[in-house]
Structure formats: C-alpha cells, structure tokens
C-alpha cells in the first residue's frame, strides 16, 4: 500500500513538472493588462480579440492551418510509403535505412534549417508555402514512420498471405487489408505531423518569408518585440486545439482498434 501511494505521488509530481509552465502562462491569457506579468489586475478577453482581429495574428493562424494541413498530407503519404518499403523482407539495409529515416529527429534543427535554406533557395522555393511545407515535412516524417512502422509490425503477415490466396492482387491486399489494419498508426502519425508543423519555429525562421509567418513564429517574434499577453492567448489556443485533436484521435483510434483487434487464437 505505501508503495502504491509513493508511485501515485511520483506520477503526480511528474505531471506537475510537465504542466507547471502551462499553469504559469495560461491565466495570463485572460489578463486585462498590456504586459505579460503577474499580478493580474482584472480578467478580460481582449487578447483573444487581438488574436482574431489583429492582422498579423489572424494571418499567422491561417498560415499555420495551411502549412499544417499541407505538411500533414505530405508527411503522412511519404512516411507511410517509407514504412511500407522498410517492411520489405528483401530490403537489405533495413536497419540502417530505418535509422536514416529517424535522423531529422536528432539532427539539431538549426543545422537542418541552414541546409534547407540553401537547398530551397536553389530551387526557388524560399519564402513560399511549398518551401515551408517541405521543410516541415522533413521533420514530421520521422514521427509518421515511427508510428506507422509500429502499426505495420502488429499486422500478422499471414493475414495478407491469406488475402492473396483468396484471390486478391497485391494492390487489393494493400487497399483492403494492410491499410485498414495500419490505420490507427497512420492516424496517429498524421496528428503528430500536424502538431510538429504547428510547433515548428527554427526551420520556419530559416525558410519562411513574411507571408508565411506561422502562429509559432509570430509568438516567437512578438516575444522579442513586445511581451504582449497575446502570446498567452495564442498559447491557450494551441493547447485547446491540441487537446481537441488529441481527444478526436484517441476516440477514433480506440474505435478503429476495437475493429481491427487481432483475434485471439
């Protein structure tokens, strides 16, 4: 029993450690003051108004949605294709290839950013939506690969063989069996890709022009210019959106998983 209590306490402390910064900033989203400090003189929604009606902020939100959606689509398609390729038994350097795919996760963003800037400039994609989406996709793909690879690993290969023997051509096997079974993983990968794009600042600094300022980038610069509580309001928006997406995913995942749970035999 004491052990249980100790475990619970530690869990709660860890959670506190993780959310403490949020607890510190979130109330400031509702301040009426013009600076981002405590104490809060009185409650107000003026910073949310600012967020939705001030041009810079509104554009940033729209940009984040455009770039996030583009990144999600591209990264999910490419990441899923890569995971399928990595699954091939005949693929010789499977292990090292997988590591390569995960590289963007560990390479410092600054390094990637510089490389990306040089590369995109060369193709004339600097300061364009396409450029930012490509840059974000590079860092989002590893999340998709990890998530989809995990889902694919859980598929019993014999189920696919069975489909073949029942008359399904390889493409049909993929469409009717492999993809539906990997769907929970693809879905989580897509959400992680979206979150990555939403959150990404460093690469955006390098490759985005003033017209592609994302919400994260806008927060970053407004911190330097004027420490306005609009940042706290933006953070609040972020968190609310994340929780919403998270909920949707958890729900649809558990629904999918209930449907695709392998039969016990």
């Amino acid at each position: 029993m004491p052990m249980k209590i100790a475990k619970l306490t530690f869990a709660l402390l860890t959670i506190l450690f993780l959310v403490a910064p949020l607890i510190a900033i979130l109330p400031l989203a509702f301040t009426s003051s013009v600076i981002l400090t405590y104490p809060i003189p009185s409650w107000s929604l003026r910073w949310f108004e600012e967020l939705f009606f001030a041009d810079a902020w509104r554009r940033a939100i729209i940009n984040s949605l455009i770039i996030g959606t583009g990144t999600t689509l591209l990264a999910t398609v490419l990441g899923t294709a890569a995971s399928l390729g990595l699954r091939n038994r005949l693929f010789f350097f499977r292990g090292s290839m997988r590591t390569l795919f995960l590289l963007p996760m560990v390479v410092p963003a600054v390094v990637l950013g510089v490389g990306m800037q040089v590369l995109l400039a060369r193709f004339g994609l600097i300061n364009s939506y396409a450029g930012v989406i490509i840059a974000h996709t590079v860092v989002a793909i590893p999340f998709v690969v990890v998530s989809v690879t995990g889902a694919l690993a859980g598929i019993d290969e014999r189920v696919e063989l069975a489909a073949q023997s029942l008359g399904a051509a390889p493409v049909t096997v993929f469409r009717r069996v492999t993809l539906p079974l990997a769907m929970p993983g693809v879905l989580s990968g897509a959400v992680l890709a979206f979150a990555t794009s939403l959150d990404e600042v460093v690469l955006t600094l390098f490759v985005a022009g003033p017209n592609q300022r994302t919400l994260a980038r806008q927060m970053f610069s407004s911190i330097r210019e004027n420490i306005s509580p609009a940042i706290a309001a933006a953070a609040f928006l972020f968190i609310a959106a994340t929780i919403l997406i998270g909920l949707v995913v958890v729900l649809s995942r558990s629904m999918l998983e209930r449907r695709t749970r392998p039969a016990a035999s």
Partner: peptide, 19 residues
C-alpha cells in the same frame, strides 16, 4: 502468382481479417 492459383489456404493461426 498466388492470387491466380485458385487455392484455398487455411493457416494454423486462421489468419482471419480482424477488421
């Protein structure tokens, strides 16, 4: 190829489509 052989296969693990 397998899908043109017209053979019914039953595996030890049954290999039913879980979805």
């Amino acid at each position: 190829p397998t899908h043109k052989r017209d053979m019914g296969v039953v595996f030890q693990s049954y290999a039913l489509f879980p979805h």
